[in-house]
Amino acid sequence: MEDRNEIRKITMAQFFPYIVRMKEENWRLVQICAVSVDDGKGYEMSYTFCNDPDYHMITLRVELGEGEEIASITQIYPCAFIQENEAAELFGVKINHINVDYQNKLYRIDVAAPFRKKG
């Protein structure tokens, strides 16, 4: 079978409508990944979805500037809560309204946002 695996860059304005459409089309949430870029000033958030019957995988990529916040997708995909909490705690990404927000107590580590790159 052909491995269809693509990364689509989208803007912040497209982000929420895109996620809603994915849910309507019954895509499965695969993973959420945060990457610290720009010496810790910004982030790249990747949301991967998979359409199981044809193994098609799409990654939506949103870029966050310094201090920019992103809405949680737990309203649409409740199962995202663990991975969103993880991104918030380990990277310091500001994610609003996570349903079951652990308030940076998921891993209960001593270091604040260890994965954020120090500039």
Binding site: I82, L90, V100, Y102, K105, L106, Y107, R108, I109, P114
Partner: peptide, 10 residues
């Protein structure tokens, strides 16, 4: 309510 992090190593 699950809570994890006992084996988190980074």
């Amino acid at each position: 309510v699950p809570s994890i992090g006992f084996i988190h190593r980074g």
